[in-house]
Design a binder for these strands. Structure first.
Lengths: 187, 187
DNA sequence: TGCTAAATATGATACCCATCATGTAAATGT
DNA sequence: ACATTTACATGATGGGTATCATATTTAGCA
């Protein structure tokens, strides 16, 4: 049955929302088109009215979730604390798209890869802008180094099944980044 | 046809070798049992003589590749340089199992997760031991922080399709880790 | 030297998935 | 109000995958 224009737009948004959660949680390959549609409250048939292929869904979902994620621009310390929290580790579906999807994007389409690249470029720039107390060279280095450590720590913490070690990875990485930023700005 | 005991042992080793390369390159889901067997020079039929299931292959491959990978214990600077090199970034199939597989392990069996956990625990310990000039608390923090940054940087660099930015992520992370370790040991 | 067990090959089987074909009903424009 | 368009539902289709069944060949042993 046909639905109103706004209904269709909302359906499309809901598809992208649930797809972004499912992809972050389980990876691109492990999520089927039918599963996405069902999670959005629809059936698989309508899918190709919205997207030309699953690859197209992946590319558009990436653009959608990266556009929505403009985190890291405000209070950097608070952002780092939240990023390296058990809560974020345990919430891949709702968490950082880089931590959830970066490793999975190597074999996706050029469009998807390019979208991810621009998302990463922006994210590094945002973190750099949140470090105004550093001179430009230190700022760039601290932004990239901290971001790499944050993403790596969350991926490692999610891979570990021992809660104590997993917590320790998050906590020690937080302390390491903190020391790195403070010492550069003090030097 | 039946083969000799040694031939069978060699076949098994070759299956684990090619599986570890394929899994690191494409992820667990994207590699089929038949593909692994073909890459090992066999057909799919013999697979269940060696392994009870694909999950079993994944678990045994992880144990195999983590046991083989005892890197990071020697000259730490040289190890970090090699880890954060374009060569390692471009060689996922032959590279670090953590960078290639950690993000993919979240939905694998408990056995596989536990194997990965022990591999990560050893790796962190090895890096810590390679930092004897630091006192114990700094050493642990530097080991975990550096390792997180290394893994994160390689994953991010592999996700980026702009060579200049990808190289920069590796290079700046190297400089960031270097500064972090030096400053702690100088302080 | 011949018997038997075992390792691998060939060939099902049952299931899941992306995509397509067609039906249906409701929104939209006149 | 009505015709038409269209968004979604239901129901194929073709291909891939994990796993199983059976055949074949030969190593290992008596």
């Amino acid at each position: 049955m046909k639905v109103s224009r706004e209904q269709m737009a909302e359906n499309r948004r809901r598809i992208l929302d649930v797809a972004s959660r499912l992809f972050r949680d389980k990876g691109f390959d492990a999520v089927s088109v039918a599963e996405v549609m069902k999670a959005a409250g629809l059936t698989h048939g309508g899918f190709y009215g919205h997207f030309s292929s699953k690859d197209d869904l992946i590319a558009q979902t990436l653009a959608h979730v990266l556009a929505a994620d403009s985190s890291g621009g405000g209070d950097l310390r608070a952002y780092i604390d939240a990023y390296l929290s058990p809560r974020h580790r345990d919430n891949a579906a709702g968490g950082c798209p880089t931590a959830g999807l970066a490793a999975d994007i190597r074999h996706q389409t050029p469009t998807a890869r390019s979208t991810m690249t621009e998302g990463l470029r922006s994210q590094i720039d945002r973190i750099g802008k949140a470090l105004p107390e550093l001179d430009p060279a230190d700022r760039r280095r601290a932004a990239i180094g901290s971001w790499a450590a944050m993403v790596g720590a969350v991926i490692i913490a999610r891979a570990i099944d021992d809660p104590a070690l997993s917590d320790e990875v998050l906590e020690q990485t937080r302390a390491w980044i903190d020391a790195g930023i403070s010492q550069v700005s003090a030097g």
